[in-house]
């Protein structure tokens, strides 16, 4: 017989290393033609940090995304941005890039203010222009302004670094401020359990994540969907089997991860509760995406068949045994 159930789980996740300094830095250069180079140590491993950082730079500099080139993760060229881990790069490197951009544009704004004969405070950068906030017809193109800067012998460079505001944890009682900000999430899973075989099929996952601000919504969704599937694997099938220190599952035929056919329908939901210290309000999403998934699935299995598994993964063998016990 097939029985369905629904389960819910929450999570929280501190962004950045726990109670440790973990700074990141970045350089920015605004070139003569109005294009931008960002130098950052931040390693993009597919999650899309290069793109996110480019968006932050473009927004801050008032240029188009196409105008920004990010050179990343080369210790011969780029400054240290720390690890791509702890869901920290959007928040920490994002802030570093934003600060670098801010510094690079100060010369520009100062020059433009003189060109337009207005206060520096009245200017904003957008659409490759330096614009008077309350009178958008009044502007100077960034490229023209750069010409003026160069004529005056001024370069437009910026450096930024950011270290989250944390304190070390007291070794005795663990008290302290381990993170500057936290991501939060709730996931709901619907499962179908075959009570004759113990097989679990995850049908749907509703994954709501508070990311502060989604710099790139489609990439945030991608993180959520991918995370959920690592969570499904963690919940139902993944297990490195070790016998006396020897791994018995050394290939992808014995260590199984979910295939396309194992995927449920995933509904990523972006919640934006802005983080005031984050770049444009952003926090992080990489790791949070998978954290509540297994718990939601286990709770859904309980809802379906009244059996609570406390040892992951929930293999059909394990579940069927418990279902039978429950029956007797």
């Amino acid at each position: 017989m097939k029985k369905r159930g629904v389960g819910l789980a929450n999570m929280w996740y501190g962004i950045g290393n726990t109670g440790l300094p973990n700074p990141a830095s970045a350089y920015i250069e605004l070139l003569d033609d109005g294009t931008v180079i960002v130098l950052t140590g931040c390693a993009d491993i597919g999650q899309g940090s290069t793109t996110t950082l480019a968006q932050i730079a473009a927004e801050e500099m008032g240029v188009d995304i196409e105008d920004v080139r990010v050179v990343s993760a080369d210790t011969g060229i780029t400054p240290d941005a720390g690890a791509t881990s702890a869901s920290r790069q959007t928040y920490i490197s994002g802030n570093a890039v934003k600060m670098a951009a801010k510094e690079a544009k100060t010369i520009l704004v100062e020059t433009a203010a003189r060109m337009l004969e207005v206060d520096e405070d009245s200017l904003i950068l957008e659409d490759r222009k330096i614009v008077v906030k309350n009178d958008k017809d009044k502007f100077v193109k960034i490229k023209e302004c750069l010409g003026k800067c160069r004529a005056e012998g001024k370069l437009t460079l910026g450096h930024g670094w950011f270290n989250p505001d944390v304190t070390a944890l007291n070794p005795e009682d663990g008290q302290g401020k381990p993170y500057a900000t936290y991501a939060f999430a709730t996931q709901v899973a619907e499962v179908e359990v075959n009570t004759e075989t113990g097989e679990v099929k995850v049908l749907k996952i509703f994954a709501a994540h508070d990311v502060g601000k989604a710099i790139n919504p489609i990439n945030v969704e991608g993180q959520i969907e991918g995370g959920c599937m690592i969570g499904v694997g963690f919940a139902l099938m993944e297990q490195v089997k070790v016998d006396k220190g020897n791994i018995k599952t050394p290939n992808l035929a014995t260590y199984l991860i979910p295939t396309a056919m194992d995927t449920p329908e995933i509904y990523p939901i972006i919640v934006e509760d802005p983080e005031v210290t984050g770049p444009f309000g952003a926090k992080g999403v990489g790791e949070p995406a998978l954290i509540p998934t297994a718990a939601a699935i286990v709770n859904a299995i309980y809802d379906a068949v009244g059996v609570r598994i406390t040892d992951l993964p929930v293999t059909p063998e394990k579940l069927l045994k418990e279902i039978k016990k429950e029956r007797n």
Partner: peptide
């Protein structure tokens, strides 16, 4: 750990959103 959560604590919102979507 004794730290006070000041802002950007969207947990109730994520619960509401997930519930509504589901």
């Amino acid at each position: 750990t004794g730290s006070k959560l000041e802002h950007s604590v969207g947990l109730k919102s994520t619960m509401e959103s997930a519930k509504q979507a589901a």
